[in-house]
């Protein structure tokens, strides 16, 4: 019997077969969950959804009506909502003194406001309690120059997770974040293409290999299952890199 038998899960940010969202969808499906997969463009998520027998839904995390509709479609289609996972993210980089207000606001909109509204709308639809999981980042745990908009907004979301967990416990809803290490995905493909970058990162990873999307999916499965009496936590899946540091750009040579 699967570890998520009888449960219904929403996963936002599954638009690419190589993504954390897609890996999580495959893992959850193997454990018996019924799935709703979402991304900004419905066409982008349809292929992944077809592979795991999931419902595909269009959802932009910065639009609260989209999030409410996503939760409603899960409940309408499968009768309930137990698990909600958010991997939506937007990349940004550059020195703070060169970063525009627009860039800060865009990162905050997706990572901070979007996460808050995701937690809110999913919690409102979880009539029997549940587990909400959102993606934090290595960059919050060990900062690096050039990531003020990205890591700042992700760090704000971690504070949200703790407060949401404190408030939503009485509804038997657990809220946690996963902080993946430097993980090969569509978002990081550019970095992984440069050997000097991967070499510099590997020196800072005690377990000696990069976090994979499957590692992240396994962690999400554990948090999603009824086995984790865990709430308000940032689960570190950085392979120990948070014990060390993030390499500086000048080390990428």
């Amino acid at each position: 019997m699967g570890r998520l038998e009888g449960k219904v899960a929403v996963i936002l940010g599954a638009s690419n077969a190589e993504s954390m969202g897609a890996a999580t969808a495959r893992r959850f499906a193997r454990e018996g969950a019924k799935l709703v997969l979402a991304a900004r463009r419905k066409e982008a998520v349809e292929a992944v959804a077809r592979d795991v027998g999931a419902l595909a839904v269009a959802c932009d995390i910065v639009v609260e009506e989209d999030l409410a509709s996503l939760a409603k479609q899960a409940v309408d289609h499968f009768g309930r909502l137990d698990i909600a996972v958010n991997y939506a993210g937007v990349e940004s980089g550059g020195p703070l003194i060169e970063t525009s207000a627009e860039t800060f606001r865009q990162a905050a909109d997706v990572h901070f406001v979007g996460t808050a509204l995701f937690i809110k709308q999913m919690a409102l639809a979880m009539a029997q309690g549940g587990s909400i999981i959102t993606a934090s980042s290595l960059t919050v745990l060990v900062q690096a120059p050039g990531l003020s908009a990205y890591a700042g907004s992700k760090g704000g979301a971690d504070a949200l997770v703790r407060i949401a967990a404190n408030e939503l416990g009485e509804r038997n809803i657990r809220v946690n974040a996963i902080a993946p290490g430097f993980t090969r995905s569509a978002m990081t493909a550019g970095y992984f293409a440069v050997e000097a970058v991967t070499r510099a990162f590997l020196r800072e990873i005690p377990l000696g290999r990069f976090t994979t999307v499957e590692d992240v999916a396994n962690s999400a499965l554990w948090l999603a299952s009824d086995e984790a009496l865990v709430t308000g936590q940032v689960i570190d899946v950085t392979a120990g890199q948070s014990l060390r540091r993030t390499p500086r750009p000048d080390e990428f040579v």
Binding site: P206, L207, T211, T212, D215, N218, S219, L221, W222, I235, D236, V237, A239, G240, S242, L243
Partner: peptide, 8 residues
């Protein structure tokens, strides 16, 4: 073996 956490 599913867990890829250390030092936590």
């Amino acid at each position: 073996d599913e867990c890829f956490m250390t030092g936590q």
